[in-house]
Design a protein around this nucleic acid. Structure first.
Lengths: 219, 219
DNA sequence: CTATATTGTTAGATTAATCTAACAAAATTG
DNA sequence: CAATTTTGTTAGATTAATCTAACAATATAG
C-alpha cells in the first residue's frame, strides 16, 4: 500500500503526464516542491514497487498499476470535494485543502458511502471528472472560453485551475458551474472577452481568466 | 503542531493517566505497541515540545497544554464517530478504524461543520463524552452493570470497551445505548446477571460483559 | 535485606523522506 | 559543433520514528 508521500507522487505523475505519458524529473520536483535528488530517489522506490518505469536520464512513465492507483487517489480527492460541497455546505473554494488530507484515508467503505449518499456523481465541484472504482477516468472535451467567438452562447462546465484565489475571483463575479454566458465581443488586442450572464450585463474577462474557464457550446 | 505519531502518543497518555495523572513508560509502550526505548525517546521529544513532564525513571505526566491537545484529538475522533453513525449511516462497530484516521486531519472548519450539522452532541456513539472546543471534558459518572443489584431498572448509557468484537456481541443481542434493562437476578457464583429488555425476556450476561456496560439507574 | 524480576535507559542501527554539494549527461544556442 | 545552460545523478548528511542488545535502576519477594 502506498504511503501518503507515495500517493502524492502518484497523483502528481498522473497530472503531469504528457500525451506519451512521460514526466520529467524536474517538473515533478517543482510540482512536489522538493529537490531533484529527492525525486530521483523516490522514483527508484516507485519503480521498485511497480508504479512506474524509470531509466537513467529519461523521463518516467507510470505503469498501468501506477495509473490506476493514482486515479484511485484522485477519486478519493474528488469524491471528498463533492461531499464537502453537496453534503456539508462548504464553498468550492474551501474544499481543496481538506480533500488533500482526506484523500489519504484508507477506508473503502467511507468513500463508497459518500458516493452512495451523493448518487454516484461523475464530476467534482470544479467540473473535473471523478474516476470510477476501477480507476477509469471519463475523458471530457470541453472548450476553453478563450477559443470561443463573439455571438456564441456557452455554458460554464469546468476549470483548468482551481486555486482558492481564482475561485474567489469567480465567486466575486457570481460565476459558477452551469451558468450560461453570452459572448458579447472579443478584443483582438488583448484577447479579453466581454460576456453577459445572470444580472451581469457586460463583464470583461481577461485572456488569463478565459483560458482557465472550460465551456460547452450551447448554440 | 503535533505529528500524527505525536497525536497518537498524546491520546494514549491522556487515556492511560491514573488519578495522579501519571503514566509509566511500559504501559505506554504496550498501549502504543512499540518498544520501551522508542517510548523513551518520544517522551523526550514530547517534553521538549511542552506536552509533558519527564524525569528519568519516573512516570510521565501531561502538562495542561498536553492534556488540552490530547483532548482536542479525542474530540476530533469522537465527533467523527458520531458523524459517521448519525449522518452517514455507519454502525457503531464500524466507525473506530475510520475515526482513527480522520482524527489526524488538520482542518478546524471540517470538524466544526460536523459538530454544527449534528447539533453539538456531547457524547459519541459509544457513550463517551466529546471534549469541547477548549479541550474540556465533561465527567460522567456512570455505574458499571456489574455493580448493580437484582430488581434494579437501569438504562444502558456507555461502554468501557468499544472493540469491534464487543460491539458485534452487543449487536447480536440487540443491545444499544438508551435501552432499559431490568435486572432479573445475579448469580453469586460467577457474578453473571440475567436481564430483560425489549423482546429479550431473560438474557444472561457474564461478569466480563457486565463490567464493560455502563448504566444509569432509572429506579 | 539480599536476590531476582521488572522497568527504564543508553548506544547504535535502520528506514523513509528529505536536503546540499559536486559532478555528469543532455539540450540549447551562438 | 563547441560552449553554455539545463537537467539529472551520486555521495553523503539530516530528521523522525522505529528497532535490538546491553546495561542500570527500581521494585518485589523470599
Amino acid at each position: 500500500m502506498a504511503s501518503q508521500t507515495e500517493e502524492n507522487y502518484l497523483k502528481s505523475l498522473f497530472n503531469l503526464a504528457n500525451e506519451k505519458g512521460e514526466v520529467n524529473i524536474s517538473e515533478l520536483a517543482s510540482q512536489m516542491q522538493v529537490s531533484m535528488p529527492t525525486v530521483n530517489s523516490m522514483v527508484k522506490t516507485l519503480q521498485k514497487n511497480g508504479w512506474l518505469i524509470y531509466e537513467k536520464y529519461k523521463p518516467v512513465t507510470l505503469t498501468p498499476e501506477g495509473k490506476k492507483d493514482a486515479a484511485l487517489v484522485i477519486r478519493k480527492h474528488r469524491l471528498t470535494e463533492m461531499f464537502l460541497v453537496n453534503k456539508m455546505g462548504f464553498g468550492w473554494e474551501e474544499v481543496h485543502e481538506i480533500a488533500e488530507q482526506v484523500e489519504h484515508i484508507h477506508a473503502p467503505k467511507f468513500f463508497e458511502r459518500m458516493d452512495e449518499m451523493m448518487g454516484y456523481p461523475t464530476i467534482d465541484p470544479h467540473g473535473s471528472p471523478i474516476p470510477d472504482k476501477l480507476g477509469r477516468i471519463q475523458e471530457i472535451n470541453y472548450l476553453s472560453l478563450s477559443d470561443c467567438k463573439a455571438g456564441q452562447l456557452v455554458k460554464l462546465a469546468g476549470l483548468t485551475n482551481s486555486s482558492t484565489e481564482f475561485l474567489e475571483f469567480l465567486n466575486g463575479r457570481n460565476l459558477s458551474l452551469g451558468i450560461e454566458l453570452t459572448i458579447r465581443s472579443k478584443e483582438a488586442y488583448d484577447q479579453s472577452i466581454v460576456v453577459s450572464y445572470l444580472n451581469h450585463n457586460s463583464e470583461t474577462l481577461s485572456e488569463k481568466v478565459c483560458e482557465k474557464l472550460l465551456v460547452k457550446v450551447v448554440e
